[in-house]
């Protein structure tokens, strides 16, 4: 399949209240095999999906948050977090996992995957996509 499209996965919900976050991540991981141009966006309560130090023992659910740190290995390195959503929740970049990828073209230099973008910038990014999957 030679067509390459721009896929954006928009994650809008908290990680454990519903299954949307986890099943979104499953699509992202499977989709990685199709070698498309993939980006992820985290908005609203979705920003909590990337929060570091998650502990799910008390609710008896699988803590899937370590999976996000594997995204770089799947060549998924465009992860956009909406600035307004962080601010509304009293969060900063420091509260999120440090996600990185290795740039093959620069001798595997480690680079940050997360970019904090404004709502307006995110709207522009959405405009540029071929496929937007919202979870």
């Amino acid at each position: 399949m030679s067509v390459t499209k721009k896929f954006l996965y928009v994650n809008r919900r908290a990680p454990y209240g519903t299954i949307y976050a986890w099943e979104s991540l499953e699509v992202v991981l499977i989709g990685a095999a199709f070698e498309q141009d993939v980006a992820l966006a985290f908005v609203d309560d979705g920003v909590y999906q990337l929060a570091k130090g998650q502990d799910t023992k008390g609710i008896g659910m699988k803590n899937f948050s370590p999976t996000y740190s594997a995204l770089g290995d799947y060549d998924i390195n465009k992860i956009y977090v909406e600035k307004e959503s962080l601010e509304a929740r009293g969060l900063t970049l420091e509260d999120l996992q440090h996600l990185v990828w290795e740039d093959e073209d620069e001798d595997w230099a480690e680079k940050d995957s997360i970019q904090v973008v404004t709502s307006a910038e995110l709207a522009d990014l959405m405009e540029q996509q071929d496929v937007v999957l919202s979870f």
Binding site: M1, V3, K5, F7, V27, G31, F34, V131
Partner: peptide, 14 residues
């Protein structure tokens, strides 16, 4: 799930 990704690739709109 590959069927969903393929649908996104093959279709004009998802």
């Amino acid at each position: 799930l590959g069927q969903l990704i393929e649908a996104g690739i093959q279709s004009d709109r998802l």
